[in-house]
Design a protein around this nucleic acid. Sequence first.
DNA 1: GTAGGGTTAG
Length: 579
Amino acid sequence: MMTMLLRRRTTSYFRNLTTETTTQQGGCDKDQNFTQILNEICTITRTKPRWEKTLLSQYPFFNFSNPNFFLLYHNHQKNSFLSLRFLHWLTSHCGFSPDQSSCDVLFDALVDAGACKAAKSLLDYPHFTPKNASLESYIRCLSNGGMVEEAFDVFVSLKKVGFLPSVSTFNVSLLACLKVGRTDLVWKLYEHMLESGVLASYDVETVGYLIKAFCAENEVFDGYRLLRQVLEEGLCPDNTVFNSLITGFCKEGEYTRVSEILHIMISMKCNPSIYTYQEIINGLFKRKNAEGFRVFNDLKDRGYFPDNVMYTTVIKGLCDIGLFGEARKLWFEMIHKGLVPNEHTYNVMIYGYCKIGDFVEARKLYEEMCGRGYAESVVSYTTMISGLCLHGKTDEALSLFHEMSRKGIARDLISYNSLINGLCQKGELVKATDLLHELLAQGLEPSVSSFTPLIKRLCEVGDIEGAKRLLKDMHDRHLEPIATTHDYIIIGLCKEGNLTESMEWLLDMLSWKLKPKEQTFEHLIDSLTQEDRLDDILIVLDLMFREGYRLKESIIHSLVSKLSKENFHFPNLLLEELV
DNA sequence: GTAGGGTTAG
């Protein structure tokens, strides 16, 4: 019954549209004929990839440009993307100009489908002015699609016509701006909110986004101040807002603030999640002390059940700070609690065993891991390779490296870099250089760490020219050497007796705002002393003091005896330093 | 959304 009614409704539209077609077709029933054509056109546009070429030739007398026909097509097709494509075709081939209602319907359908770019293309139609409510939905659509700049522009144009979107629409956009890192737009939008008067009082969601924007801009304390303000109003932001503040304060090493926030959370019954603690423990372990371990134990005492991820993080942290025994205890503890180690957990534990040089146990764990069905990977291999290198076992590391290619495990940049580093430390420069070439031949893009150990070693063995060649190679690849790489070159030049160039390099380094190591100054002063280059010594000493270094007593002695032998007049600056 | 391999120098 319903379908009958619908059909009747639809066919009544057709009556006006099909005169041309039906006169061509003679005695056919008009309505049926039109429905048939509509169906056929819909099918063709739905199924034929290049329907644009066939439509006009197949229906030469059909009146495509009637706006009602487009609406019928859209309703029948129920596919806003196809309708848009059809609309573009009608416009360019049939001189069709869509009316307001067609555009309205299609625009809303596209926005509902989340197709912000498609919806945007409709705005180019000259006579189309979307309804304000449609534009508000469009803002949400743009925001969800990450097109925050466009969304902002729509806010601005709505403001011009005096239409005020809801707080919730503003919030959707604020979140979107945060996600794409546009805190500048967060502030602009907020200003807009304030001016418009949309905020009758505090909106806790809005405030949460502002706090996150502060954190993203490393203005954590401002975020914290805002938090306190909103708490005084009796409102409490969600967990993620607290987490952002905690992450921010961890980054700044402000652990008293971190613990303040934790207390606030607990007092507001906004219980810190496992993620919150993860942030804290991670942050604490980066300080290379046992503070993170203490927080972890404290948590367990308070009845928290750490998950696999947290155990893995803490085990890794403990290995890093040299508390391997504690790491091992945790490994057994987690297994005892029924948590099954996964490849991440295995890997940190293997890393720990490698670090202390227990390769027998490392191997055992490795095999256990494989036995449990975890695939051997470039990560697990690299862990073992760098572990072996750490203990000078470069031959074994190399054989593992070859084993990888036999097993078809692709070697990546990090695996090459680990081995290059290990070989350089062992003094195996030729093999290390070969690896660099192999890395390049594989089509991998080298990183700073691919070059650093090689340059260091070349300087140590006195091949400054070779080191400079690699530096140039880095430069050509737009790779910025770390500061110490320059230290090696300067010391290398000293050892070569090339003191003038060494000093020049030192001056360059300072002009690049890089801090040379104390040792570098000492080497240079020592070499200059031996060559009796007193004026240069004074220059270098001055630079050294400016960097905040002081002279070691042994160097003072040799300097003083040298300078007095030369009957040298001590400048005040130097005297002050020496006394 | 969270966790695993290389990167200074000691």
